[in-house]
Design a protein around this nucleic acid. Structure first.
Lengths: 334, 334
DNA sequence: ACAATTAATGAAACCGGTAACATAAAAGAG
DNA sequence: CTCTTTTATGTTACCGGTTTCATTAATTGT
C-alpha cells in the first residue's frame, strides 16, 4: 500500500495541509470539531507523517547513530542494550553501524552518519588505529560530522565527551588481589600496546600493581597481541609449553579470557592457575565454574553515554565531560 | 561545524545547484573542467549530501529496518550479523529496533519503521502474541507499512516472504537420535504453545518422533512455558525433584538449554542425562563439555533473509518465497 | 555557410512536511 | 454599533536535494 501524504489527508478533510500539520504539532490551535474530524481521517487512512520530510523541514533529525566494533561480543551487546533503553525512552531511532574494529570501516561508518544527518553519535572507535598516525583523519571526520559525539570505552585523546572504565586501576586491583592470595608470578595477556591506547593503560596498571607489591616484572610472562580469543588461546598455550613457573593469569578482556579457558581446558589444567579476567565471561556461573573477574558494567556505560549525548544535544555549550567508571572485583566460588 | 548544502557548493563554484547535483549523480553529463573543479570544492569543504533531502526528493530510502526480539541472545546476534553483512555490501543503512518479544513493543517498532519510511523491513515477530487474536492488528500494520517485509524465524501465517528453520523436523530428529541411543523416557522443555506457533511446531515434532519410535507420550515429562533461561531452570529442577525416571532431555532453544545446564550443574547431576538443545550453547565447546545440539545457523538465516528482501525490493511482483532451512545434529564429545 | 544535432548548463517545479505571515470571521470593549 | 482583539484557517515560502524542460553554445552535415 502506498503511503499517503499530508496533502491527501488535507484533501479528504477539505482543509489545507497547514491545518493537518497543526493537528499533529499544536492541536490546541485547531478547532475541536475540525481536529476530531482530521484525526479520524488520519486514523482510518493509517496515516503516519514522513520523518524524512519532517526532518528536512524542521532541520532536525530523530535518529541517533551508534558505532560499535561488533554486536556479537557480550560486552558490546550489553552496552548496546543500555543505549537502546535510553534512546527508546526519548522517542529516538537508532541507526546502527559496526566498525569491526577496523579503521577503514570506522571511517565509512562516520561518513554514513554524516550522510544520514543524525542528531548525535555514540562512538566506540576502532581500537586498532596505528596510534597517533590516523588520529588526524578521525578528528577531521568528527569535526565534519556536524553533530555531538560521545566517545565510549576507548580514549582517542580528543577534547570531547567521553566515558570509559578505569582500566589501569582495574588491572592494578587484579594484580594486588592475586599477590595477596600468594601469587608472585603473574602472567599477563593483553592487547597490542602499539595499536591501542587501552592496552597501554592496562599494561601500566599491571606494572604499577607489580611495583606496589615489590615484584619485578618478568617479560616472558607478558603477552600482548590481538584482542581476540584466538590470541588468548595461543598466548596461554605458549605460556604453558614454556613451563615458566607462573601461578596466575590476568586476561585483559572477555575474548582473551575465553581463549585462556580454551587453552587450559584443552590441556586439562583448568585448576592449575588462578585467573582474573577483565569483563565477566558468560556461562561460567551457570556451570558453577569458579571464576574471578573485574566487573565492567557495560550496560551502565551505554546508559550513561546515551544520557550524556542527549544532554549534550540539549545543551551544546555545556562543559565537556569525561566520565570514568569504576570497576569492581567479583569472586565467584561454588 | 554546520553542514553545507548543495547551494553552498554551487555558489562557491559559481554554477547552479543542478550542475552540482549532476556531478554526484551523472558526472558524464558535466564538462570535465567544471566537474573537476566542483569535485575539488566538495572535497575541500567536506561536503556530503543530505540523505534526508535526497530521499525525500527521490522518493526512496536508503535504510532497511530490522526488528528483532533482543540482540543479547547469541542466536539473534548472529542473525543480525548476517543481515548487517548483506546490508553493508549493498550500501544501505540499518535502522535497529528491538521488540523485546512483546506485542506492544512490536507495534511501536512497526510504527517507527513506517514513520522512517524505510525501504524494507526484516522482521522477527514477537513470539508471545496471544496467537490468532492479535494477528489482525499485525497484518494491518504490515499492510500499512508500504514497503516489503521479510518475516524471519517465526511464522505468523500471513502471505508474505518468510524464512525459518524446519523446527518440527529438528525436534523429531533429536528425539529419534536419543531413542537410537537407547533412551525411552525423554523430557521435553518447550515454549508455551498457547502463545507461540513455533512452540506448536516443536511439540508436534516431539510427538511425531515418539510416535515413530513407538513410544507413548508421558505428559509429566512435557514442560511448556516461557522461552527463558529461568523457565528452563525451573522446569528441569522440578523434573529432577519429581524423580521421574527419564534419562534424556530436549530443550527447545538456547535460553531453555542454559536453564537446563544451570539446574543440572547446581544439582551436581551434569552427567545424569543426555541433552539435546535447539541452537548451539556458547562456551561449552571451549570448556570441553560434551554437548549435542541441533544447529540452526542463524547467521545464514540473516544473510538469506536480507538477500530475499533486497531481491523483493528490486522485483516487487516476484512470486512470494517461503524458505525452509534445514538444521543438523551436532554431537560434540571430547 | 546555414540548418540540424548535440553538449553543457540553468531555471523552475517538485518531494512532504513546517512556519511565518495574511485573512476572515467571531468575540469582546467602550 | 463600531473598533480592536482573538480565533481558526489558508497562502506561500522554505528545507536540500532531484528532475523536467528550456536555453545557449558548440559541433556536425551537406
Amino acid at each position: 500500500m502506498k503511503n499517503l501524504t499530508i496533502s491527501d489527508i488535507a484533501r479528504k478533510a477539505g482543509v489545507s495541509k497547514t491545518t493537518v500539520s497543526r493537528v499533529m504539532n499544536s492541536p490546541e490551535k485547531v478547532e475541536e470539531g475540525t481536529r476530531k474530524k482530521i484525526e479520524q481521517i488520519m486514523k482510518e487512512a493509517h496515516y503516519t507523517p514522513s520523518a524524512t520530510a519532517r526532518n528536512l523541514s524542521k532541520q532536525i533529525s530523530s535518529t541517533i547513530g551508534v558505532i560499535v566494533p561488533e554486536i556479537g561480543n557480550a560486552f558490546f551487546g550489553e552496552l548496546f542494550k543500555g543505549i537502546e533503553d535510553v534512546i527508546n525512552k526519548n522517542d529516538l531511532s537508532l541507526l546502527y553501524c559496526s566498525n569491526e574494529d577496523k579503521a577503514q570501516k570506522d571511517f565509512e561508518a562516520l561518513d554514513m552518519m554524516k550522510t544520514q544527518r543524525v542528531k548525535g553519535v555514540l562512538y566506540v572507535p576502532a581500537v586498532n588505529y596505528p596510534a597517533v598516525r590516523m588520529m588526524g583523519k578521525v578528528q577531521k571526520k568528527l569535526e565534519a560530522l556536524g553533530c555531538p559525539v560521545v566517545c565510549i570505552d576507548r580514549d582517542i585523546s580528543l577534547h570531547m565527551d567521553t566515558i570509559h572504565f578505569d582500566d589501569r586501576k582495574a588491572v592494578k586491583t587484579a594484580v594486588l588481589s592475586l599477590v595477596k592470595a600468594g601469587h608472585h608470578k603473574i602472567a599477563f595477556i593483553n592487547g597490542n600496546e602499539e595499536k591501542n591506547i587501552l592496552a597501554i593503560e592496562r599494561y601500566e596498571g599491571y606494572r604499577e600493581g607489580l611495583k606496589e607489591a615489590g615484584i619485578s616484572e618478568d617479560e616472558r610472562l607478558v603477552y600482548q597481541g590481538e584482542y581476540q580469543q584466538s590470541y588468548g588461546y595461543l598466548a596461554m598455550k605458549e605460556l604453558m609449553e614454556k613451563e615458566l613457573d607462573f601461578t596466575a593469569v590476568i586476561t585483559c578482556n572477555n575474548s582473551l579470557g575465553r581463549g585462556y579457558l580454551q587453552a587450559v581446558h584443552e590441556a586439562g589444567r583448568a585448576d592449575a592457575f588462578e585467573h582474573i579476567s577483565l569483563d565477566k565471561i558468560e556461562m561460567l556461573d551457570l556451570l558453577r565454574i569458579p571464576n574471578n573477574y573485574m566487573l565492567r558494567d557495560s550496560y551502565e556505560m551505554g546508559r550513561q553515554a546515551a544520557e550524556m549525548l542527549i544532554s549534550r544535544i540539549a545543551f551544546p555549550d555545556k562543559k565537556i565531560r569525561n566520565i570514568l567508571l569504576e570497576t569492581s572485583l567479583v569472586k565467584e566460588t561454588f
